[in-house]
């Protein structure tokens, strides 16, 4: 059986709260573990944070988030109408550098890649569409 949950993040300043509340509600209706909820929240926050960094002049359109679950497979689809941005093209940071050479940039998408099984990006009709697959084990 396939279960689908959808919501939008509309308000820039309260976006993270909207995200946390919606994911909390979905996690409890799907009986997800605390760790699964944490990983899903992290994935979506990092993608959302990247989106808000790349939009111009705070012209933020709603970001649509869809979670589709079929047995132990979860597909997260994140859609926005911001400027073209393909997070799969961002190179990984070197996480083995000593502290003096470390920079924090790029760690968000690195964590997304770690917690997701596959990530694919499409740009259609001025819209960024990101599909993220994750096994719920």
């Amino acid at each position: 059986m396939k279960t689908v949950e959808e919501f939008q993040i509309q308000n820039f300043s309260k976006g993270l709260d909207e995200l946390r509340v919606n994911l909390g509600r979905i996690a409890s209706s799907w009986s997800l573990s605390k760790k699964q909820l944490f990983e899903i929240n992290l994935i979506v926050e990092e993608i959302y944070a990247n989106y808000t960094e790349h939009v111009e002049n705070n012209t933020i359109h709603p970001v649509e988030i869809k979670l589709c679950r079929e047995k132990d497979k979860l597909v997260i689809t994140i859609t926005d109408q911001g400027p073209e941005f393909d997070p799969t093209k961002i190179p990984d940071p070197d996480v083995h550098l000593p502290i003096d050479q470390r920079k924090a940039g790029g760690l968000g998408l690195y964590l997304v890649k770690h917690y997701a099984d596959t990530i694919s990006y499409t740009r259609t009709d001025n819209t960024n569409i990101l599909h993220i697959e994750k096994k719920l084990t």
Partner: peptide
């Protein structure tokens, strides 16, 4: 909860 924003603060 911690995200990359938290990691940035911790690194600084």
């Amino acid at each position: 909860y911690i995200s990359s924003a938290g990691l940035r603060t911790i690194l600084n």
